[in-house]
Nucleic acid binder design. Sequence first.
DNA 1: GTGAAAGCGCTAACAT
DNA 2: ATGTTAGCGCTTTCAC
Lengths: 342, 342
Amino acid sequence: MRPSIKQVALEAGVSIATVSRLLNQPDSVSVDTASKVNQAIEALGFRPNFTGRNLRAGRSHTVGVVVPTLSNTVFAQCLQGIETAARQRDYSVMFSATEYRQQDEAAAVELLLAHRVDGVILTVADAEASTTLDVLDRERIPYVLVYNQPQQSTRPSVSVDNHAAAYDAVTHLIKLGHRRIQMLAGQFHASDRALQRYHGYLQAMQQHGLPPLAPIEVARHTYTSLALEYLQTFRDPLQRPSALFCSNDLLALSVMRDLRALGLRVPDDVSVMGFDGIPLGELMDPMLSSVEQPSEQIGGLALRTLVTAIEETQDGYQAASSHILPHTVRIGASVKPFTNPL
Amino acid sequence: MRPSIKQVALEAGVSIATVSRLLNQPDSVSVDTASKVNQAIEALGFRPNFTGRNLRAGRSHTVGVVVPTLSNTVFAQCLQGIETAARQRDYSVMFSATEYRQQDEAAAVELLLAHRVDGVILTVADAEASTTLDVLDRERIPYVLVYNQPQQSTRPSVSVDNHAAAYDAVTHLIKLGHRRIQMLAGQFHASDRALQRYHGYLQAMQQHGLPPLAPIEVARHTYTSLALEYLQTFRDPLQRPSALFCSNDLLALSVMRDLRALGLRVPDDVSVMGFDGIPLGELMDPMLSSVEQPSEQIGGLALRTLVTAIEETQDGYQAASSHILPHTVRIGASVKPFTNPL
DNA sequence: GTGAAAGCGCTAACAT
DNA sequence: ATGTTAGCGCTTTCAC
């Protein structure tokens, strides 16, 4: 068995309380007992057991994180931001993924709650109608959404303004002369952000008097391939959109690959705009145009917001606050002004 | 305060032992008491507290993961693989990053040990000379290295054969007629894999009677830029290498961007070979040639290996086993046969 | 089949 | 400045 403060106390010839004090308020122990105890700690290779501490304190100094998948760079960056900020504040991070499955959100949160995490940072399929968030609300566990941006409810979140960001991106395409602009997205039901971005697309189109096209909804949110028969319709320059607006960068890069395979050139035949601004997009040739959101900062801010809520939740339960971070439309060579294909 | 088995017992009119039994061996409880207790659990919204359970059991059903950074896709994929496998086995995952700083490895592991994780999966700077691993060995905490591939020591690991993989990649370049092949890597002292890959490069060169070139060691392991003055030397077709072998894909993609900025074409002027085989490399144009390693499987296998070691560590401490997974050299258009620049 | 009680490691009154 | 003790939530003998 690993040594506990008990063996340390025995070894040092003091009481367990003294050992505990040395660990928590070193100043409240006399110098020579301190050295005795430290010596015993050293000799036994003692390491405090947080399980005991946490049980006693009713707090774990641990936050839970639940996102769809780390295969999407954007969530990996966000988790990285969370972890860095957590480490600075002596919090640990417990991580779980859902693979975009709504039922797995609930299971993941249940497990985190059983571990008694002090709070949760998460991205859910639909922030408005989420039984998982209902549980968190009911249990009064502080949480912060990332990427989700609830409209109706007042659930705490850190995100960009998805609607405005999409609006800006599409407006940029329109300003370049594009009229047939189509959106490509993963399943809307698994991503409320994608839907909000679609609404931004719609508003931009309508505001400029352009008829919106039906969105292309593909099965996966990450690496994907357009159905070949669908892609075939892109052969006709009059039928295909002159610009594609994709709900994330992985889809944008995937469709660019598909278009190339079809013999079409980006941006000459089709302009492509992504969303997320993943770092690798900048290394592409042509450089991917995309709406940049600061994923690592989103994670960092979410963690700080969460910790604030946790530590203010002494007596009354304090919900975390919401933050909208600025986005920027990154212009790369994957987009160019519209030219008549005829 | 959240309800404990105590309130459940009170509510159901049974002892806490009965509640505990229902939770752990439901069959050992009579049907009608079971229903009474279940009703109480429902009514109170009881959720078992793992902290208490873990303290008592001396086990946490949690594994720790320590990698350099999630900004490198390869580690994100690996963590994703770990998490998926862990979830299947009802293990939770605590995650920490080191940003390639060796002192942070120790701190991260210390924190995990304080949380009494049952085992650790990690990538360290140098698996042979790692005080962090010494701690784990001394404390008899099961662990599995990922990506690290210790040569001398018998430390358990899951990786590809870095030396052989690099050898294969460079041999491929040589077979294409390249003679001036240079390696580009992050700081070797922060990545023993990079060094092993360099040795593979050396062997391939020497075995084919080619003079190896001094490796280019850049400061960062991820998104980077070659020093401009250095890159300038690439202007001279006779001075520059005809092929670059990069220690990872992020460096490969970064240098491709740099070369483009310089007006050089890949692969016409310089062929580029990466290492890792990140999914995004396949979406590039030209498609990135790279040594593919199965990152998600590495993570999954590491987790399974670790859990096996954990659960066999009942009495005697059982170290985990090592595994070498197969690599494949992915050939993309970033590499082409050597042509005389004159 | 069920209950009583000890104890995992720790902290925080409370006492001295 | 230090010791004594109760108890956080849970599992597990040991009785009955």
